[in-house]
Design a protein around this nucleic acid. Sequence first.
DNA 1: CTAATTTATGGGTAATAGTGGGTGATAATC
DNA 2: GATTATCACCCACTATTACCCATAAATTAG
Lengths: 153, 153
Amino acid sequence: MGTKTFTGEFRYSIDSKGRVNIPAKFRKALPETSEDTFVVTRGLDENIIAYSLDKWQQIEEELLKLSSRLPGHRAYKRQATRFASPLKFDSQGRVAIPANLLQHAGIEKDVVIIGMIDEIEIWDPEILKRYEETVFQLDAEDIEAIDNYTRSS
Amino acid sequence: MGTKTFTGEFRYSIDSKGRVNIPAKFRKALPETSEDTFVVTRGLDENIIAYSLDKWQQIEEELLKLSSRLPGHRAYKRQATRFASPLKFDSQGRVAIPANLLQHAGIEKDVVIIGMIDEIEIWDPEILKRYEETVFQLDAEDIEAIDNYTRSS
DNA sequence: CTAATTTATGGGTAATAGTGGGTGATAATC
DNA sequence: GATTATCACCCACTATTACCCATAAATTAG
C-alpha cells in the first residue's frame, strides 16, 4: 500500500453544518490504531494542526516528562493541551471542527489543508497567502542553516 | 537488466484524461520497493520534479528531523511537502499529474521528460527552450566552481 | 524479413470522493 | 416536563478517479 504519511495540498469548504472534509488520502494514511480519529489543536501559526491519534499520544508522553513545578513547563503543557480535541470523522470522511479553533485560524468558509508528513495544517486561504508573502520568506542563509541542521543530526 | 538510474530525454503529450506516459526505461529503473510509484512535486525552476518513492522517503526522513517549534523549520518543511504527491502509474505506465503542478510548470499539452540520474524533470517544451537559451548558460567560472565542489566532497 | 512482444495512446465502466441534506437520539433550556 | 438546539448517523446525487480492455506504432527476436 502507498505511503503512510501526509503530503499535498487540498482545498475544501465548510458546509452549512460546520463540517469539513478530510482528504481521502489522509484518511487512508491513518494507522488502524488511530480509529478514524484525528486530534486537532491550535497551531503556532494562525492555523489549526491535526495529528493522528497515535502521534498525539506520543506528544502527550513528551508532555508528561515536563515538570509540574516549573511555571514555564506548566504554561507550555497547558497551552498544548487546552485546545486539543479528538475528532472522529463520519462515514463520509468529515469532521466538525470546534468553533474556537476556527476562530483562532480565522476560518469562515474555505480551508486549505496541507500535509506535513506527520501532521496536518488547516488554513484560511487568504491568511495562508499572506503568510507566504511575508512570514514564510526564507532567504539563502536560512535555507543553508536548515540544510546543515538536517545533515548534522 | 539495465541501469537503475534515470537518463535521457523523452517527449510525450497529456491525453484527454490528463494522463502522461512515463518512459518505460524509467519505470524499469524503479526499485521494487517503490511499488510503481513516483512522487512528484514543484521544481525550483518552472518545472515538475519526480522522485522514486524510495528517494522521497529519504527526503521525508530528513524533514522529520526539523523542529516543529522553529518557524523557519516549519516553513521549510511546509514548502517541501505541500506540493508533493505520490503517483502510482496504471497498467499502461501512465500517471495523472495534479493540476496545480501542471500550472506551476506551464504545461498544457506537450511535455519533455528528462532523466537526471536520481530524479526526473518534467518540462513544457517551450519553457525549457527558453531556459536553455538564457538561464542555463554556464560560463567557465561556473564550471570551475562545480569542479571544485565535486572534488571536495 | 517476418512474427512476437513491448510501448504509447485512446476510451468504457465501475468504484470512490466530495457535497448536500434528512431524521432520530441526546442534551440543554425554559 | 415540554421545547428547542445539537449532534451522530444515514441516505442520495454528481464529478472524478481507478481499473480494465483495445488498438496502432515501434521495437525486439527468430
